[in-house]
């Protein structure tokens, strides 16, 4: 049976982390509090080869090589809705929304032939997968592939910048390799988060000051919103710390 899928605009997937292309992260820097999310992909994983092209490759202390996806991400707690999700459940920036939102439920960080399970709605999601919904995926191929190809293309184009960032972090924060090794050894996988300030410094973007100035108030506001929730203590600490980092960077000439 060919999988069918139609979005019902339930807004359930508009919560928590949102992986962005670098171009989208910069374009929406005044909207989303950003962080860099690192996800090791092991050599025996189906998406390993693709991950080596989209991300960086890192040699671990055990002499194994892993691919690492390093993705600029709208860094929101899982329970938090996207700041642009309106009361009526629709998107406040539908015309300009990021590639990631357009391509859902497909996911270009995985091979095109390996997308079928993404069409199964997650718990609580109200996606329409009934016979009345259109066929969107057939013979392991995406039928309307415009958004998928655009997002994948942007990810491939930005890969050299991501590799440069990885080189910087491995040089100046060498202990991250041990953390990546730990994550890679876990059967469930996992990820770690680094600051946007390290990315701005590593890539020497000429617009770093503007991006930092846009980010600082977002981090401040999120620090405030997460202050009293013990479950979000790590988020709160990151938000407050990164707010200071962005304020310091924004003061640079």
């Amino acid at each position: 049976m060919e999988p069918r899928f139609s979005c019902t605009a339930c807004g359930k997937c508009c919560h928590g982390w949102l992986p962005l292309t670098l171009a989208d992260a910069v374009a929406h820097a005044g909207r989303f509090p950003l962080a860099m999310v690192w996800t090791p992909v092991r050599q025996n994983a189906r998406s390993y080869e693709l991950a080596t092209r989209l991300g960086a490759t890192v040699r671990l202390p055990n002499r194994k090589t892993v691919a690492v996806l390093i993705v600029p991400t709208a860094y929101l707690p899982t329970s938090h809705p996207c700041p642009e999700l309106r009361e009526d459940g629709l998107c406040g920036i539908h015309e300009d929304k990021p590639s990631r939102c357009r391509t859902m439920p497909f996911y270009p960080y995985r091979e095109e032939k390996d997308q079928a399970d993404l069409l199964i709605p997650r718990k609580g999601w109200q996606c329409d997968t009934s016979a009345s919904a259109p066929v969107v995926y057939a013979n392991h191929a995406i039928l309307d592939r415009k958004d998928f190809d655009r997002e994948r293309g942007d990810l491939l184009d930005q890969a050299p910048v991501i590799q440069r960032y990885a080189d910087y972090v491995l040089k100046y924060m060498p202990w991250i390799v041990d953390e990546l090794a730990k994550l890679a050894a876990k059967p469930t996988g996992g990820n770690l988060v680094t600051s946007l300030s390290s990315f701005l410094t590593a890539t020497r973007r000429p617009d770093a000051v503007e991006i930092a100035a846009a980010q600082a108030p977002l981090f401040r506001a999120m620090a405030e919103r997460t202050r009293d929730d013990p479950a979000l203590r790590d988020y709160h600490r990151n938000y407050s710390g990164w707010a200071k980092e962005m304020e310091a960077l924004a003061r640079r000439k």
């Binding site: 040089k171 300030s197 410094t201 310091a248 960077l249 640079r252």
Partner: peptide
């Protein structure tokens, strides 16, 4: 010199 993450350094110094 360009690799110095001043924002992070200020935060580490302060915290």
């Amino acid at each position: 010199r360009d690799d110095f993450n001043r924002g992070e350094a200020e935060r580490v110094a302060e915290e």
